[in-house]
């Protein structure tokens, strides 16, 4: 699945990581620029949350997206941050597919308001989910390769792929 050349692996993982971080940062930032009431209305139209959870979720979720974006960007414990991103995107995608299948005329709410849910938004979200999965798998595989190396290789941390935990606890 991964290219044989370690440099290419490194570059691809870095690119995927930056892209994924950018997606989460943009999603959180654009929601935070609007009143939380707008995101609450989007969530309400999806009919997935009870009324008493609309306000806390619409207030907290954009900050969680920003935090996750920063975490992914930092590369610290990348496999876990990417796995969390995959999980979040899988949940968002399932909710949107469900809403679309139910025929709800709703706002996607993915990157702020004013974006109606449709095949285009679903395709874009599917691509984002695929990206998150790829980054997660790549991060786990690179970690496995690194831990499987003979001890002598560990003395050259500069040869490790960017985005894996060079000096971080496992």
């Amino acid at each position: 699945m991964l290219p044989a050349n370690p440099k290419v692996q490194r570059m691809l993982l870095l690119l995927g990581r930056l892209l994924l971080a950018g997606i989460f940062l943009a999603a959180g930032y654009l929601k935070l620029r609007e009143p939380w009431l707008q995101f609450a209305v989007s969530l309400n139209s999806l009919k997935i949350l009870p009324d008493n959870l609309l306000e806390p979720v619409s207030r907290i979720l954009p900050w969680c997206e920003v935090a996750l974006g920063i975490w992914i960007l930092s590369g610290i414990w990348l496999r876990w941050s990417a796995a969390l991103a995959s999980l979040m995107l899988a949940v968002f995608f399932s909710v949107l597919v469900r809403s679309y299948a139910m025929g709800l005329q709703v706002d996607c709410g993915c990157f702020g308001s004013g974006e109606p849910l449709g095949p285009k938004t679903l395709a874009r979200d599917a691509l984002m989910l695929a990206l998150a999965f790829c980054v997660t798998i790549a991060a786990f595989r690179m970690r496995a390769v690194r831990t499987a190396r003979p001890p002598a290789d560990d003395s050259h941390p500069s040869s490790l792929p960017s985005g894996t935990e060079q000096s971080r606890p496992a």
Partner: peptide
């Protein structure tokens, strides 16, 4: 002016 698209549930609007 803060624009809110869509039907706002009253309890959320009230809180806001």
């Amino acid at each position: 002016r803060q624009k809110i698209d869509g039907a706002v549930p009253f309890n959320i609007l009230k809180s806001y």
